[in-house]
């Protein structure tokens, strides 16, 4: 149990430079929630005070960002200067990260889409990039009824304009929603505008 608690506490320190600082300032309070032996506690104090601990915290953030940026690169770019703050909030609120790219990106997209300050343009782009990842991931699967290599999205923005948008800038919405079909059955992903969604 002591090793498990040591690892739990160490994982929490690595996930949060703020917690590291708190352990340095108020070790009794910051480590109160863990069943630690005296040796484990002494070790954590030493590690929290090691200046190289900052690299562990940096790597934690980098490794959590990689799946998000790999699946949702344009959404990250659209967030622009807001990205750092959004990630801080996501990492603090959703601590159980996974390195399964699709799952982590999907969870982040759901979390982000549920925020009141997420714009309709960003919601469209998140849905588009997740759908791209899903159909491309299924590209080698055999054909069947509900073919996972094809998906249709209802979008309120022109996808070309969204993809071309400069960092932090959003195009205006379309007069009416459109349906976009994504098809990864061939050698390349094919996008087809089907019809106006409200036709």
């Amino acid at each position: 149990m002591s090793l498990a608690e040591f690892q739990r506490a160490l994982g929490d320190l690595i996930a949060s430079p703020v917690r590291c600082a708190k352990v340095r300032r108020l070790p009794g309070l910051a480590l109160a929630g863990y069943a630690l032996t005296a040796r484990a506690r002494e070790r954590l104090l030493g590690m929290a005070g090691d200046p190289r601990m900052a690299m562990n915290c940096t790597l934690y953030r980098v490794n959590r960002l990689i799946p998000l940026h790999a699946v949702l690169p344009r959404s990250c770019r659209l967030l622009g200067s807001r990205l750092g703050g959004v990630l801080d909030a996501y990492f603090a609120g959703e601590r159980d990260g996974t390195l399964q790219f699709g799952m982590e990106a999907s969870r982040f997209a759901q979390w982000l889409a549920a925020r009141h300050d997420t714009t309709p343009a960003l919601r469209d782009l998140l849905a588009f990039e997740l759908a791209c990842h899903a159909v491309i991931s299924a590209a080698g699967e055999p054909e069947r009824g509900d073919d996972p290599r094809r998906r249709t999205l209802a979008l309120r923005h022109d996808i070309g304009a969204l993809l071309a948008a400069a960092e932090g800038e959003e195009p205006p919405p379309l007069p009416a929603p459109v349906l976009l079909e994504l098809d990864a059955r061939g050698d390349a992903l094919v996008l087809t505008l089907v019809e106006p969604a409200n036709a």
Partner: peptide, 13 residues
């Protein structure tokens, strides 16, 4: 019941 990925290999004692 879910696992938390530590983001990197934790230093081991």
């Amino acid at each position: 019941g879910s696992d938390h990925h530590a983001g990197l290999a934790l230093p081991l004692p």
